[in-house]
């Protein structure tokens, strides 16, 4: 019973993706269009550039390094500062206009400024990624910390729960879902900025590969790179979801309890 149920679930989830791939395969099989090559050719190019270990390392490693460092910087900075600003409302209030302005700058628009200030090396790219993905995490942390259920804080106050305990046991956990929501947006933004930053200077990476393919009118290779980027984004998202599930386990359990309570 259980097995057939989960089989049904899997079938329900994958029939459409399979259908789309099959339709794409046969619809494009005899394509002579320059812009829409056959799926078979795209997959061959994908295998050649992204599955071969040597090529994959050359094309992927620089990107992952940039993304990882920049995103980590944004995450740590965003959560720490966001918590501080969320708790100490006077700071938040006083700096709000400046923060809102800085946050409003589209990250990519800063690329030229960052090039002038920091050059075209990895350091500039990491800073740009960090700057762009910092804001959603930072602002969501502030919001999450401020939106803690007032009743919970009141109760903890009545019972004289210590400050550190209140921060780690009440404020941060209850801001958790919102912090993760911000971190998820930040991941998407970090990926965009990564690709954009990599088109500057020639140090490998997915963005450079895309630009190179475009310059050489290597449309099939370009499609392969788009596929690779999609898979990279998807895999990163799965990792993200696993971590989120771990950290927010209590939240899920609570939701489940509410569900079964009915």
């Amino acid at each position: 019973m259980r097995v057939s149920n989960s089989l049904k679930m899997i079938a329900l989830e994958i029939w459409l993706p399979i259908l789309i791939v099959v339709v794409w395969w046969f619809a494009s099989a005899n394509s002579t269009s320059l812009y829409f090559p056959p799926l078979q050719a795209i997959l061959e190019s994908f295998a050649e550039n992204w599955l071969d270990p040597q090529e994959a390392i050359q094309n992927l490693a620089p990107s992952l390094l940039l993304l990882g460092s920049g995103y980590l910087l944004a995450l740590v900075g965003g959560v720490v500062l966001g918590t501080l600003f969320g708790i100490v409302t006077p700071i938040e209030h006083a700096t709000r206009p400046v923060l809102e302005t800085l946050r409003a700058v589209p990250g990519v628009a800063l690329l030229p400024i960052f090039i002038v200030l920091f050059g075209i090396d990895a350091q500039m790219k990491i800073l740009l990624i960090a700057f762009g993905s910092f804001w959603p995490i930072f602002l969501n942390t502030i919001d999450g910390v401020r939106a803690v259920e007032p009743l919970l804080l009141d109760v903890s106050r009545v019972f004289r729960v210590g400050r550190a305990r209140r921060l780690f046991r009440i404020v941060l956990p209850s801001a958790g879902p919102q912090i993760f929501a911000g971190a998820r947006t930040a991941l998407a933004i970090a990926l965009i900025i990564m690709v954009v930053a990599e088109t500057v200077g020639g140090s490998g990476g997915i963005g450079y590969f895309l630009l190179d393919a475009q310059r050489n009118f290597a449309i099939t290779a370009m499609w392969g790179a788009i596929l690779a980027l999609g898979i990279l984004g998807y895999v990163l998202n799965i990792f993200f979801r696993i971590i989120e599930r771990r950290v927010l386990r209590w939240h899920r359990l609570q939701q489940a309890r509410l569900e079964t309570a009915k």
Partner: peptide, 11 residues
């Protein structure tokens, strides 16, 4: 959703 939209810019 996870494909960075910028990837389709060249195309």
């Amino acid at each position: 959703r996870t494909i960075p939209p910028i990837a389709i810019l060249p195309l």
